[in-house]
């Protein structure tokens, strides 16, 4: 089983203050810390589990700046065989359909049975690249996968639906699966693997290497335009409890008990 796994480097903004930059179309990311996208981490683990079970290769694909190499090497340390990073400032990363086009051009023509992506990138939340990639490659897909069972020329997957329900779907290979978090328990990279990963192949490609023209994937070629970003006003009716942390706890406790909430 030869698998491609697509990974993206994303900022952790869960605790960070996000500010729109001077262009009005991007945010100031100078203070963010970055790492592999959560769902992609599970996709890497799933690809490696498949390789350990039935053999084959795992190739990592990432479109992103040089800083992504640390995260790519981690995926190689866990068991990936080689990696391709696409780095070209002409690509419009706002449009998931254009990102998919670039990833498809990277994978097309190579031998593979499966392509795994995360179901969602936590920064843009598009939930679109994997399914668009399948269409570009002209192969079947299933989104929101939380269990994979391989068969002869086929793959059976559980798609996670709302409310805890899942549906079982069977597809012909090759196929694209978008992997949902919680499907497995991502491993830590072993020390020995980290050393070995330094020697594994990591190719860096541009649009020219992929045979794509700038006019396929740049901002002008996109059918949508990001006009501007703004910080949403948080409409909150909450009573904000003030004081030192311990005082806040005491005030809340009193409100809950005296207010008859407990």
């Amino acid at each position: 089983m030869n698998t491609f796994v697509c990974i993206k480097r994303v900022p952790d903004t869960s605790e960070a203050e996000v500010k729109v930059d001077a262009s009005g179309k991007d945010v100031d990311s100078s203070k963010f810390s970055f790492d592999i996208n959560d769902a992609d981490n599970y996709a890497v683990e799933e690809a490696i589990l498949i390789k350990e079970k039935v053999g084959g290769t795992v190739k990592v694909v990432c479109m992103g700046p040089k800083d992504s190499d640390v995260m790519i090497r981690m995926a190689l340390a866990k068991g990936g065989d080689s990696a391709i990073r696409i780095d070209d400032p002409r690509i419009n990363v706002i449009d998931p359909l254009q990102v998919a086009k670039v990833l498809a051009a990277t994978i097309k023509g190579q031998e593979f049975d499966l392509v795994l992506t995360g179901c969602m990138a936590s920064d843009d939340g598009n939930m679109a690249v994997g399914v668009a990639l399948a269409e570009e490659l002209g192969i079947p897909h299933a989104a929101m996968v939380k269990k994979v069972e391989l068969g002869e020329g086929k793959v059976k997957v559980h798609r996670e639906l709302e409310g805890g329900l899942s549906e079982v779907v069977e597809m012909n290979l090759p196929a694209v699966l978008t992997i949902q978090t919680g499907i497995n328990e991502p491993r830590y990279a072993p020390i020995k693997g980290i050393r070995m990963a330094q020697k594994k192949e990591l190719k860096v490609l541009t649009l020219d290497d992929l045979g794509l023209s700038e006019n396929d994937v740049n901002e002008a070629a996109s059918l949508v335009e990001l006009k501007n970003l703004y910080i949403p006003e948080v409409v909150s009716h909450a009573e904000i409890i003030e004081g030192e942390p311990e005082q806040k706890a005491e005030i809340l406790a009193e409100k809950l008990v005296k207010g008859g909430l407990l």
Binding site: P96, G125, A128, V131, A132, R159, E162
Partner: peptide, 22 residues
């Protein structure tokens, strides 16, 4: 939704139409 995200991106690619998610 889990259903919509399984359809919409592929539909947009096939029809080559402007597409915004979520």
């Amino acid at each position: 939704t889990t259903q919509g995200v399984d359809i919409a991106p592929a539909l947009a690619v096939e029809m080559k139409i402007p597409f915004v998610t979520d």
